[in-house]
Design a protein around this nucleic acid. Structure first.
Length: 876
RNA sequence: GGGAGCUUAGCUCAGCUGGUUCAGAGCAUCUGCCUUACAAGCAGAGGGUCACUGGUUCGAACCCAGUAGCUCCCA
C-alpha cells in the first residue's frame, strides 16, 4: 500500500465498518464465555444524532469494544423508542402538509399514516450511529412498539392493575392545550416570564366595602370557589364569615381562613380556583370547595365561564382586564416576573387541569429500587447522584401513565355501558370479565368500548432491558438468562428518575433482579460558553459534519478528552482537532516503522530501550486498567494518549530509530512491531478505525481472516521492573538537562558534546550510555569520581553531571545559577528540618512519613554539599 | 422557600486514605528549531493566595463551621 503523508479517515471508516458488519463481529449469541451487556438508551425514533448522543454512544462503544477485547461475549443491543408525543406531532404535521386533519381520520387510519412515517423517517439516528463506529449487534435492533414489546407493555399493565398498583383517578395534571394531552412533570420546562399582576376588587356581600386580590390569571376568576385569608391577618378580621361576589358574573363565594396564605404576598387575599391551580386544588379539597372548570381541552373558555365563552385563555385574559376596568373592579396592574411551565414538545404554556387519568402507584415499588442503590447492588457513577436518587425515591409521587394520544400502546381498559370498566388484553378476554362484573350475560363485545388513551412512552422503556431479550414473552429463554442483568447503562442524569429508577423498579418487579450493575451518568454537552446546545441557539455543530472533518476516531477522542463522568462537557471543536492530530501521530509512527529495512547481520544495540518500554507499557497499562475499573474514561484515554505519544513515539522510537537510510537489526524490529501491535490494541476502543486499518497492514505479516484488531486480545499489565522505569526517568531528566544546556548556550543540537558523570546514587549509568549518547548527542561519556572544573554542570537527584565547554563557559552566569540553586535547596532543607525538629511530628506521624523526611534531609544536604563545592571551584 | 453539588493555571479538568519536591495534566501562550515518521511536528520555558474567613491537626487543596458566587433538582 502506498503511504500517504497524513491519515485519511474516510476510506478506512467505510471499509472497516462494512467489514465488521458483514463478518458478524458485532453479533453476539449466548455461549460459555462471560457476557458483557449494554442496552442502548433507545433514542427517540424521530430523533437525529446530536452531540449528546455522540458522547453517550462513544462511551458505550468504548466500553463494549474493550469488553470484547477482554474476551467477554459483548452484546450491545440497539433500538429506538416510539416517543408518543413527539412522533404524533410529526405525523400530524406531515398530514397537515398533505391537507389532512387528524380529526377527520379514524384511529386505524391515523396509525397507518404514523407507521408509514416511522418506516420512512424513523431510525435515521441508528444509521448515523454507524458512522461513529458503534459496534451494536444490529440483528437485535428493537423498537418499543414492536409487537412483542407492545405485548409486554400491555401484559405489564394488566399485571400491575391486578396487583392493585394501577388505578384511575381525577388528578391535577400538566395539560398541554396544544398537544391536547397530559404531560409529566419532567416534560414541563419552567421558564421565567414577564407577566402582569392584576389587582381585582370583589364586593363584600351585605355592605359597601370590598376586598382586593392580586392574580396573574384574571381570566380564571369565573372559576373561583372562595377567597382565602390568613386567620392571623389582622387587616381582615372583619371579613371572617363573610361572602364576596365575583366581579362581572356576580357569583357569591365564601371567605375562608387558612394559614396557607402568605400575608405579605400581594394583598394577603388569595382567590381559590381549585380547577386551575394545584395548590388551590389541595386547598379546595381541604375546605370542601366546589371545582369549577372553565376551560376546554384546547385552552378556550367553556360555558362554565359564563362570559367570553370560546375565547382562548390568553385572549380572554386581555379582554377580561378591559371588562374589569370598565366595571371599575380593576384597581391596578403591576409588572411581575414568575416561573411558568411550558410543554417540552409543543412549547405551549402548561395548564394545570383536572382530568381522569391512569396512575401507577410508586411507593411500594420504590422501596426495593432504592435499596438496590443504597446497598451497592447498583452503582451510580459518579456516586454523588445517590443523594439525589434517594431524595426522589423517598418522596416519590404516583406516575401518571396515560396520554391523550393515539400513537402508543392503547390502554387495555374496556368500558361497559354502565360506566364500569374491566382490564383485559382483548375485547374477547374482556367480555367474560364484564359479564361477571355486571351479572349481565347479554353483553357482547359490541358493548365494550376500549379506553381511547395510550400509555406513556416511559411505560414501554422502563421494560427495555427485559423486553429486548423477550423476557416477558418467554421469561426463561436462553438470551434473557444469559444477558440479564446487563452490565453497564450509560445515560444522562436528567432521566435518572423517570427512566433509570423505573427500570430498576421493573427489574425487581418482573425479574426479582437489578436490570444493570452500573449506571454511568454522562453530563450535558454544552458549547464552550457553557450554554446548552440547542436548535434555537444554533450553537450545536453537526455531528456528521464533525466526523467528515476530523474522522470518527478524532471526534471520539475529542468527545472523551474532557468529559469525566457526571460532568458537563464544554465542547470545543479544538478537542476533535486534537483527536485528529493524535490519529495522525500514530499514522506517522507507523510510517516510520514501515520504512525500516532489516539487516540480519546486525546485533541488537537496544536491549535497555526494549526492556524499558516493555516495563513502561505495563506500568502505564496498570494505570489505564485502574481508570477503566473506576469508569474514569477520560483519564484512561489521557493515560493511553501519553503512553503512545510520549513514551512510545517521543522516547522509545527515538531511542531505537536507526540513522536515516540505515537498516535495523532483527530483534529490535520484531520487538518494535510487537509493541506497536500492543499500542494498537489499547487504542482500539477509543480509535477503532485507524487501529483496524493499521492492524491489517502487511507490516504485521499474513493474518488469519478472523485475526482483526476488534477481537484482538487486550494486553494485561503484569510484573514490572519499577527500578528500571524510575531510573529511566532520571535518564530522561539528564537528556532534558543536556538539551537545556545546549539551549542556554546557543549550541546547535547537531554539535556533539562530552558528558562526565559523578554518580552518587548507585545508578549504573554505563547501562544507559547508548541512550544518553544517542538522545543527548553525546560524543564521549565518562564516569568520574571527582568534580570537574571548567565545565557546565547540573544535578539530577544526587548525581552530578558535567559538560566541558572549554572557553565558552560563562563563569558569572554559572555562579549565579549555582547560588540560586543552593538557596532553593537550603530553603527546602529548612522546611524539612522544621518538621523533623518538631517533636510532635516525630511522635505522631507515621514512621514511613518520618523516614521520608529524613531521606529528604539527607538528599538536600548532599546536593548542597556538591553544589557548594562546584561554586567554590568556580569562584577560585 | 427546601435539597444537592460546584469554585484548583488563560481554558477544560485531575488531585483516591490529610503526609514524597504536592500544587498536577491536556490544551492555549511564549522562546528556539522545516534535525528526512510526523510543522497536524520537535526541543524548551513561563503561568496558581487551591473562592473567602475561621477552626481541628505535628501537618489541610483535602476534614469541620461560616460567608460569597455559580449550577442543578424539587416546590
Amino acid at each position: 500500500m502506498s503511504i500517504s503523508k497524513t491519515y485519511q479517515p474516510k476510506e478506512a471508516e467505510d471499509k472497516w465498518y462494512k467489514y465488521w458488519l458483514d463478518n458478524g463481529f458485532f453479533r453476539s449469541v449466548p455461549d460459555e464465555r462471560e457476557p458483557y451487556t449494554i442496552v442502548i438508551p433507545p433514542p427517540n425514533v424521530t430523533g437525529v444524532l446530536h452531540m449528546g448522543h455522540m458522547l453517550n454512544n462513544t462511551i458505550q462503544d468504548v466500553l463494549i469494544r474493550r469488553a470484547r477485547m477482554q474476551g467477554k461475549n459483548a452484546c450491545w443491543v440497539p433500538g429506538t423508542d416510539h416517543a408518543s408525543i413527539a412522533t404524533e406531532a410529526k405525523v400530524v404535521a406531515m398530514l397537515k402538509e398533505r391537507g389532512i386533519s387528524k380529526k377527520d381520520l379514524t384511529r386505524p387510519e391515523f396509525l397507518s399514516y404514523a407507521w408509514e412515517w416511522k418506516e420512512k423517517y424513523g431510525g435515521i439516528i441508528l444509521e448515523q450511529l454507524k458512522k461513529l463506529g458503534a459496534s451494536c449487534d444490529w440483528d437485535r435492533t428493537r423498537f418499543t412498539m414492536d409487537d412483542d414489546l407492545s405485548d409486554a407493555v400491555i401484559e405489564t399493565f394488566i399485571h400491575l392493575y391486578n396487583k392493585g398498583l394501577i388505578y384511575r383517578g381525577v388528578r391535577m395534571v400538566n395539560w398541554d392545550p396544544a398537544g391536547k394531552t397530559a404531560v409529566s412533570d419532567e416534560e414541563v420546562i419552567r421558564k421565567e416570564v414577564n407577566q402582569k399582576l392584576y389587582y381585582i376588587q370583589y364586593k363584600v356581600v351585605g355592605g359597601d366595602s370590598h376586598l382586593t386580590i392580586a392574580t396573574t390569571r384574571p381570566e380564571t376568576i369565573m372559576a373561583d370557589a372562595a377567597i382565602c385569608i390568613n386567620p392571623n391577618d389582622e387587616r381582615y378580621t372583619h371579613l371572617h364569615g363573610k361572602s364576596v361576589t365575583i366581579p362581572l358574573i356576580g357569583r357569591e363565594i365564601p371567605v375562608i381562613l387558612d394559614e396557607y396564605v402568605t400575608m405579605d404576598f400581594g394583598t394577603g387575599c388569595l382567590k381559590v380556583t381549585p380547577a386551575h391551580d394545584l395548590n388551590d386544588y389541595e386547598l379546595g379539597q381541604k375546605h370542601n370547595l366546589p371545582v369549577i372548570d372553565i376551560l376546554n381541552d384546547d385552552g378556550t373558555l367553556n360555558e362554565n365561564a359564563q362570559i367570553l365563552i370560546g375565547e382562548d385563555r390568553f385572549i380572554a385574559r386581555k379582554k377580561i382586564a378591559t371588562l374589569l376596568e370598565t366595571a371599575g373592579s380593576l384597581e391596578k396592574v403591576e409588572d411581575y416576573k414568575s416561573q411558568i411551565g411550558f410543554s417540552e414538545r409543543t412549547d405551549a404554556a402548561i395548564e394545570p387541569k383536572l382530568s381522569m387519568q391512569w396512575f401507577c402507584k410508586m411507593e411500594e415499588m420504590a422501596k426495593p429500587a432504592l435499596d438496590y442503590v443504597l446497598e451497592g447492588d447498583i452503582k451510580l457513577i459518579p456516586d454523588k447522584f445517590i443523594n439525589t436518587y434517594r431524595h426522589w425515591m423517598e418522596n416519590v409521587k404516583d406516575w401518571c401513565i396515560s396520554r391523550q394520544l393515539w400513537w402508543g400502546q392503547q390502554i387495555p381498559a374496556w368500558y361497559l355501558p354502565n360506566g364500569q370498566f374491566v382490564i383485559a388484553k382483548t375485547a374477547g378476554e374482556a367480555l367474560p370479565l364484564a359479564i361477571e362484573k355486571t351479572q349481565n350475560p347479554a353483553l357482547t363485545t359490541q358493548d365494550l368500548r376500549q379506553d381511547e388513551d395510550v400509555l406513556d412512552t416511559w411505560f414501554s422503556s422502563w421494560l427495555w432491558p427485559i423486553s429486548v431479550f423477550d423476557g416477558f414473552k418467554d421469561p426463561n429463554n436462553a438470551d434473557i438468562n444469559y444477558y440479564y442483568p446487563t452490565n453497564d447503562l450509560v445515560t444522562a442524569p436528567e432521566i435518572l428518575f423517570f427512566w433509570v429508577a423505573r427500570m430498576i423498579m421493573a427489574g425487581h418487579e418482573f425479574r426479582g433482579q437489578v436490570p444493570f450493575k452500573n449506571v454511568y451518568l454522562t453530563g450535558i454537552v454544552r458549547d464552550k460558553l457553557g450554554r446548552k446546545m440547542s436548535k434555537s441557539l444554533g450553537n450545536s455543530p453537526d455531528p456528521l459534519g464533525l466526523i467528515e472533518k476530523y474522522g470518527a476516531d478524532g471526534v471520539r477522542v475529542g468527545m472523551l478528552l474532557s468529559s469525566p463522568a457526571g460532568n458537563d462537557l464544554m465542547f470545543d471543536e479544538k478537542y476533535c482537532e486534537q483527536g485528529a492530530g493524535f490519529a495522525n501521530k500514530i499514522w506517522n509512527a507507523f510510517k516510520l516503522i514501515k520504512g525500516w529495512e532489516v539487516d540480519d547481520s546486525l546485533s541488537n544495540p537496544n536491549g535497555i530501550a526494549i526492556e524499558w518500554f516493555g516495563n513502561r507499557f505495563s506500568e502505564a497499562l496498570k494505570g489505564i486498567e485502574d481508570d477503566f475499573a473506576n469508569y474514569r474514561l477520560s483519564d484512561a484515554l489521557m493515560g493511553t494518549y501519553k503512553l503512545v505519544w510520549d513514551d512510545f513515539c517521543a522516547w522509545y522510537l527515538e531511542m531505537i530509530k536507526p540513522v536515516y537510510l540505515q537498516p535495523i537489526d532483527r530483534t529490535t524490529y520484531t520487538q518494535t512491531i510487537k509493541f506497536f501491535e500492543d499500542v494498537l490494541k489499547i487504542l482500539h476502543p477509543f480509535m477503532p478505525f485507524l487501529t483496524e486499518e493499521l492492524w491489517n497492514d502487511e507490516l504485521f505479516g499474513q493474518r488469519a481472516e478472523s485475526d482483526k484488531c476488534i477481537v484482538a486480545q487486550m494486553p494485561q499489565s503484569g510484573q514490572m521492573n519499577t527500578q528500571l522505569t524510575s531510573e529511566l526517568e532520571v535518564v530522561k531528566q539528564i537528556i532534558a538537562d543536556i538539551r537545556n544546556t545546549r539551549n542556554s548556550k546557543q549550541l546547535s543540537p547537531k554539535e556533539s558534546l562530552d558528558l562526565m558523570i559523578k554518580a552518587n546514587s548507585g545508578i549504573d549509568f554505563n547501562k544507559y550510555q547508548p541512550i544518553i549518547c544517542k538522545l543527548g548527542n553525546i560524543g564521549e561519556l565518562t564516569l568520574v569520581s571527582d568534580t570537574v572544573e571548567g565545565a557546565s554542570s547540573f544535578l539530577v537527584g544526587t548525581d552530578e553531571f558535567y559538560i566541558p565547554l572549554g572557553e565558552t563557559i560563562d563563569v558569572a552566569a554559572e555562579i549565579e545559577r549555582l547560588t540560586k540553586e543552593i538557596g532553593y535547596q537550603q530553603g527546602f532543607l529548612k522546611s524539612v528540618m522544621g518538621k523533623l525538629g518538631n517533636e510532635r511530628f516525630v511522635q505522631n506521624a507515621k514512621p514511613e512519613v518520618v523516614a521520608n523526611e529524613q531521606k529528604k534531609k539527607d538528599d538536600a544536604e548532599a546536593k548542597i554539599k556538591s553544589l557548594t563545592e562546584n561554586l567554590n571551584r568556580l569562584a577560585n
